Simulated scan of single mutants.
Amino acid sequence: MSVFRPFRFISKLEIEAYALNIWLQMERSHNPLQLPIDASIIAEFLDLNLVWDTIPDDEQGAIAARILPLEKLIEINENIPQLKGGFGESTIAHEIGHWVLHIDVEQVERYIRLKQKGVDVQVKPFLCRSSNLARIEWQAQYFAGCLLMPQHILTELKQDKDLTKWQHLYQIATDLGVTISNLTTRLQDLGWIYLDTDTRKIYLNRSS
């Protein structure tokens, strides 16, 4: 039995809308997100449990994280150092992206009800590998950026800031609780800045 959606193209705008919808749902429930953003609070709002644990390698290698759909559980591999620290929020948001975009939550609920009635239901975990460049991984990572750095929040935070100055970008990243890498990637995705990777100089857009 599977609860995983077949792959489909999802536009950036649609992914942005999925992420914004969570913000709006939390606001309507009188549980608005506060800065810096704690992604575990979003997981809890979505009725997802979250643990950092040891996930053994399989025949394909290291597993960065996995989702156990019927347990509504996100497990993140604590033995992969790059998933910790400042990247922790992005890692959690990435897995939330898989839950929202790639798992049929209604089907999950149906299977949970069957299991509660004693029916033997077996569902494989959703595996996420840090080295995987598959399109669904790109979708989940783009979702994470939208969830942790919504455009309307960035618009507020950039007031009186110069986006070409690193110290201003670091301040925005601190306010949001994300890494500077997460922030510059998001700002470039939005087309607000262009970062010259050779000189590390920032321009307001590619034509500057």
Rank of each mutant, 00 (worst) to 15 (best):
S2I: 02
V3N: 06
P6H: 07
P6E: 14
E16V: 00
E16T: 03
L20N: 13
L24Y: 12
S29F: 06
H30A: 12
N31V: 05
P32W: 09
L33W: 05
D38N: 11
S40T: 10
S40H: 06
A43Y: 01
E44G: 05
L46K: 09
N49Y: 12
L50S: 03
V51I: 15
D53S: 14
T54L: 14
I55F: 08
Q60F: 14
A65H: 07
R66M: 14
L68T: 11
E71I: 04
I74P: 05
E75C: 15
E75T: 10
E78Y: 09
E78V: 15
N79V: 05
I80A: 05
I80T: 07
I80W: 05
P81E: 10
Q82K: 13
Q82I: 15
Q82M: 11
G85H: 11
G88H: 10
T91G: 08
E95K: 11
G97A: 07
G97T: 05
G97R: 03
W99F: 11
V100L: 08
L101I: 12
L101R: 11
H102P: 04
I103Y: 09
D104Y: 10
V105R: 14
V108F: 13
V108Q: 12
R110M: 12
R110P: 04
Y111V: 02
Y111F: 15
K115W: 09
Q116P: 09
G118V: 11
G118I: 12
V119C: 09
D120Q: 13
D120C: 08
K124I: 03
F126L: 13
L127K: 13
L127Q: 10
C128N: 11
C128F: 14
N132E: 13
L133V: 13
I136Q: 10
I136S: 13
F143D: 02
A144I: 01
A144Q: 02
G145N: 07
L148P: 00
M149R: 10
Q151M: 07
H152F: 15
T155M: 10
L157G: 07
L157Y: 08
K158W: 01
Q159P: 00
D160W: 03
K161A: 07
K161S: 04
T164I: 03
W166S: 04
W166R: 06
Q167H: 11
Q167N: 13
Q171H: 14
Q171W: 14
A173V: 06
D175G: 02
D175E: 15
L176H: 08
G177D: 05
L183S: 03
T184Y: 00
T185F: 01
T185P: 00
L187E: 00
D189C: 02
L190R: 01
G191F: 03
G191L: 03
W192I: 03
L195W: 01
T197A: 06
T199V: 05
T199D: 06
R200F: 10
K201Y: 06
K201I: 13
I202C: 03
S207V: 08
